[in-house]
Amino acid sequence: MAIKATIYKAQLQLADMDRHVYADPQTTIARHPSETDERMMIRVLALAMGWPADTSEGTLELAKDMWDTDEPALWHKNFTGDIRHWVDVGQPDDKRLMKACGRSDKVSVWAFQSSTNVWWNNIAGKLVRADKLTVWQVPTEQSQELAKLAQRSMVLQVTVQDGTVWVGDGDRSVEITPVKLVGAD
């Protein structure tokens, strides 16, 4: 019998002063049995950082990348089904990223492993035509601290100012300074 997903709930209180986005998104996370707390929390961070200022064409949602290889970790589909924003977490290969750039208006990657620099150096040259792509690196120590905030039911305050992100749960706070490896936004 297969192990089932573990359900987590996250309520975010987002104050992104850099983009002037203020929202209270809530999400239910079906955590795949092989997914770590660290990866799950990077998905939550990516949700907050990619939350659209204008939600009239839908919002960013968690997808089923761990179950379906044709889906990203998160995506923003408008009401006609067009993919506005494709978000991957980890270290996807160049073919996947080029395909995503062809399918969506915007593609973001949130990498967090200590091997991110090696991965990026190996594929960066293959992505010169990917003008829709933005790649962020979360320093490993910071992503590991973020993982410690994981709980089955979470209320997280996410504040963004001058490129720095603070994520707190009322008792603890983690400072995250994502590094942009490539991209315009």
Rank of each mutant, 00 (worst) to 15 (best):
D105R: 10
W86H: 10
T27R: 02
V87W: 00
A46P: 01
Q91H: 14
C101R: 06
F112W: 15
F112R: 00
E71P: 09
R96M: 06
A53T: 04
D88S: 13
R39E: 04
D68A: 13
H32N: 07
Q26C: 09
S104C: 00
T69R: 11
N78K: 13
L74Y: 00
K77F: 08
T59P: 10
H85L: 14
W110R: 01
V44E: 03
A100H: 02
T27I: 07
A30T: 07
S108P: 00
E38L: 03
L60K: 14
C101I: 08
D93E: 12
I83A: 15
E35W: 09
C101Q: 05
V87Y: 03
H76K: 12
A73R: 11
G102M: 12
A73F: 09
G90P: 00
T80R: 15
K95R: 14
P92W: 09
D68P: 03
Q26R: 15
F112Q: 00
V107S: 05
E35I: 12
V109T: 01
S108W: 02
D93A: 11
D37H: 04
T59V: 15
W110M: 08
D37A: 08
V109C: 02
T28D: 05
M66V: 04
T55F: 07
D65H: 11
H85N: 09
D54T: 05
L97S: 06
D37C: 12
G102H: 04
P25M: 07
V89G: 03
A100M: 10
D93V: 02
R103L: 15
D82M: 04
W51A: 04
D70I: 04
I83M: 12
A100L: 04
D37V: 03
S56D: 01
H32A: 10
L47R: 05
G90V: 04
W51Q: 06
P52Y: 02
S108A: 11
D70V: 07
E61N: 13
M41E: 00
H85Q: 08
Q91R: 11
R103S: 08
D94A: 15
N78R: 14
Q26K: 14
D70G: 15
L60W: 13
T55E: 10
G81Q: 01
P33S: 05
L60E: 06
M98E: 12
E35Y: 13
K77S: 14
T27Y: 07
H32V: 05
S34H: 07
M41Y: 05
K99W: 10
S34L: 12
T69L: 10
